[in-house]
Design a binder for these strands. Structure first.
Lengths: 346, 346
DNA sequence: GTGAAAGCGCTAACAC
DNA sequence: GTGTTAGCGCTTTCAC
């Protein structure tokens, strides 16, 4: 209950609806209605409305959303977890997410969870304690663990990029993308000697992860239409520049030079690879065709051409929000695949 | 007041401290203390503590931070605004910010405000309504307008990258950085004909913005030690790839080719420039020396060398948090400059 | 057209 | 060692 009488004058106090009510000679409920827009249906007079709004402006009233959220049991918050902010792909995701959240008058909270399953669940638990209304789980290592805690607290959520089995998922058609790139590799590359070098390689990615699996499948199936595929042509050394550099260096050492063609799993893998490639003479680089399952604005301007797939970030997020908005209410646990774009290196 | 008797059994209700209290045959305050760690000083018995904790786990109790925040008048939230998530520099800022917030047990909220002064204030107002405890204002177009609203609501904040006059600021020493790059330009570039092409240019940035001003100063002062400087050598065409491309294209058209050397204001400007540069033959590119006041992992691997300054993101954020943590309480309105790193293109 | 009052879920002062 | 209670700032039902 609020003390009606208070030692301090209203103007001294933190400006709450009570302070304003006192100043406007009216009640807190009236002020509340005026300040949150429900006043017309409460048939409050234009006159009092104006008076209160003027006072609110003058005293720079700022609603306390912890209080209003508590009362309404709605926070107005929407969360998203991503592996890292430093990646161009997830940076774009955040950007689009921000804008779509703004459109819906929701406050976005984007947090990085570093591909760490424990951190993912812990972070989501925290977000839930802040009463987020929706959650986008992007590129999560353990999406199902996250779903499990969301479900228990009744938080609507959707997986993006890396799908899960317990919640609706939106992902790029990575099989198609990798198959396209591999076809380009086959079409544009030329035979190499010795035969050991006359092969295509897939470098990077995490063996367990769904996106990697699909890409590897697309790669393998396409290669197989032409040639047999040896297991060592798939080299899932993670999403890490340094590891990728080492891996490529070792590969080239064992082959005696670059192979016929390479698909890199992501830009960060490409980045690592380049660190080695830049040490090679141009004519060596020209023997090999390079592809990347990820897009980066600078990768088109390297010393050598790189063919890429670019994920349709807006398409992914739109599909995600459509699910969140419940427009796909009918379909049970939708699984949406969005086609990436093909960006040729020349 | 809470109804002590309720129709539904405790297990049916949302699990609050009241539900747990009922289940554990104890009071809500006891449960509260146990669940927020203050129970030892309340001298609550190990026995009840264990019992309650087990129940909390079993029922997956999740504290409602809107409620606890309201009561404690602390939200545990820390905000940051940045121009965009898609920029590598601000992406790194977000990453470091996230990690530093986590260390302090604060929930980070990073929002993009698109270099739009109105959106900056509006966003900060919203963040304040969520009762954020601190705010980092990074790369803001109108930092002082933001400070004004923070001050009124007593929110501790600090400007990063782009300083303001109303709050402590941390920024890179862009004057130094640009001067270094320009010195490299002078040292490495070779005379060009006709004389119109024998000049150095600064492309990109926003004329009004502090970082641009400092960079232009560093550039101008260094050029001036050697040659006179014409106003058209400074071309602040914004932070936009398309505009930069157009500007460079026009410049080269008017000069009849590339000039002696160019400093680009940021990676996005460089990105636009490259879109034109990639159309030029290598021997043309070799006539010109390129620098960039910003770092991007791929810019080292282009067809031509680019010399860059790389902002010390960790250094900037550490300085920012030091101010926020109040460790610089003594100094009034600190202004910290952090040296960037020099990354040579070869 | 407006006000009184209950209560969202939690914490902390105070009581015993 | 534990329970009772006021109240954080707001929304909303109900009363007039």
């Amino acid at each position: 209950m609020h003390k009606v009488l208070d030692m301090k004058k209203a103007s001294d106090r933190k400006t709450t609806i009570y302070a304003l009510a006192e100043l406007a000679q009216t009640s807190s409920s009236t002020v509340s209605a005026i300040l949150n827009g429900t006043w017309r249906q409460r048939r409050i007079s234009e006159e009092t409305a104006n008076r209160v709004q003027a006072l609110a402006l003058e005293h720079r009233y700022s609603v306390n959303r912890q209080a209003s959220g508590l009362r309404k049991s709605r926070s107005g918050l929407i969360g998203m977890i991503i592996p890292t902010h430093e990646d161009h792909f997830f940076g774009s995701m955040s950007q689009v997410f921000d804008e779509m959240a703004r459109t819906r008058h929701l406050q976005p909270i984007v947090v990085s969870t570093l591909r760490d399953a424990e951190l993912e669940v812990a972070t989501v638990a925290t977000l839930i304690s802040y009463q987020i209304e929706y959650l986008v789980v992007a590129g999560a290592t353990a999406p199902d663990a996250v779903s499990e805690v969301c479900q228990h607290h009744g938080v609507k959520h959707v997986n993006v990029d890396l799908p899960g089995t317990l919640a609706p998922s939106v992902t790029s058609d990575n099989y198609w993308g990798a198959a396209q790139l591999t076809a380009i590799l086959i079409a544009r590359s030329r035979p190499q000697h010795p035969p050991l070098r006359d092969r295509l390689y897939f470098i990077g990615g995490i063996a367990g992860d769904y996106a990697t699996r699909r890409r590897v499948q697309g790669f393998a199936d396409t290669v197989n239409q032409q040639w047999p595929l040896e297991p060592q042509q798939i080299r899932n050394c993670g999403y890490d520049a340094a590891l990728a550099e080492t891996d490529l260096r070792q590969l080239c050492a064992s082959l005696g030079g670059l192979p016929r063609g390479i698909v890199f799993a992501s830009s960060v893998v490409l980045e690592g690879a380049i660190n080695y490639l830049k040490t090679l003479p141009l004519e060596e680089l020209e023997r090999c065709v390079f592809c990347c399952c990820d897009w980066n604005p600078f990768a088109s301007y390297l010393r050598f051409p790189v063919h890429m797939t670019r994920q349709d970030v807006s398409g992914l997020m739109e599909a995600a929000f459509q699910i969140i908005d419940g427009q796909d209410e009918g379909a049970p646990r939708p699984f949406v695949e969005v086609l990436p774009h093909l960006v040729l290196g020349d």
